[in-house]
Design a protein around this nucleic acid. Structure first.
Lengths: 127, 127
DNA sequence: CAGCTTTCTTGAAGTTGTCAACCATTTACA
DNA sequence: TGTAAATGGTTGACAACTTCAAGAAAGCTG
């Protein structure tokens, strides 16, 4: 189990570096929705880290033109995050790459894969 | 699956901080064996990071008196890492804590847990 | 309007990570 | 044997993540 986590983490970092992104940047891109701008604080909550941390991560994503900050109309304190066109394209390729089943799991039989999926679902439902 | 990884990572970091250790420090302690000193380079390989990185991690573990560096007799370039008495005690408590099944998995039925374990084993054997 | 709260930013400090350069030691070979 | 190359670890520079404390700007409340 421990081993599997380690392998998965390696895989995740390898994919992130394919896109020249850091793991938190990938998490941020995954969470943001091109159709629906979200405030920084929500991203911080999703990433389970401090607001001030998100500032830096978004700074670097914005430098690369992947996301944009925009003051909310209703409350000008909150900055809404939107994904740019380039960002959406990267996000899609990233999602496709991450959805490929990891090597150890791909080598399992179809029945095992199904069983695994069902057990995982039950585990997360109970959580 | 993604979600499960995220949850597991959170759990791991929470346990690490219970012991006032960082994740890499925990990984290092887990890898070292109180009975058998190992060279820095082997730890670097296990942690999949640069030698120079291990230098810093071991520095901080040594500052807390958890591990010790000792020049190998055969080749004085290599530093053998040993776990101190305090280190072994921490390592044991840590192992016990990490072996407790994580909450989402613990809530599964016994059959599901067994099935999960068997599938995991098959996955890692094939890898 | 005055004071409190909320959202985000900034700055300091610490850890991780990589890379290049370096030192000491060992090994290879001419 | 003696010099050159390889090896193990350290150091320094740099970038990113992380948290905390302090601050600025905007909004809310009485």
């Amino acid at each position: 189990m421990f081993e599997l986590l380690h392998v998965s983490k390696q895989r995740f970092m390898a994919i992130a570096s394919e896109f020249d992104l850091s793991p938190p940047q990938v998490m941020a891109l995954r969470h943001l929705d091109p159709a629906e701008p979200k405030p920084m604080s929500e991203l911080a909550q999703a990433l389970r880290c401090d607001n001030s941390n998100v500032t830096g991560i978004v700074d670097r994503l914005e430098d690369r033109g992947l996301v944009e900050r925009r003051a909310a109309e209703r409350d000008r304190r909150v900055k809404m995050l939107t994904i740019t066109e380039r960002g959406a394209e990267v996000r899609d390729r990233l999602a496709a790459r991450l959805e490929e089943p990891p090597a150890p799991l791909a080598s399992l039989s179809i029945e095992d894969q199904r069983a695994l999926r069902d057990i995982m679902r039950r585990a997360l439902d109970r959580a």
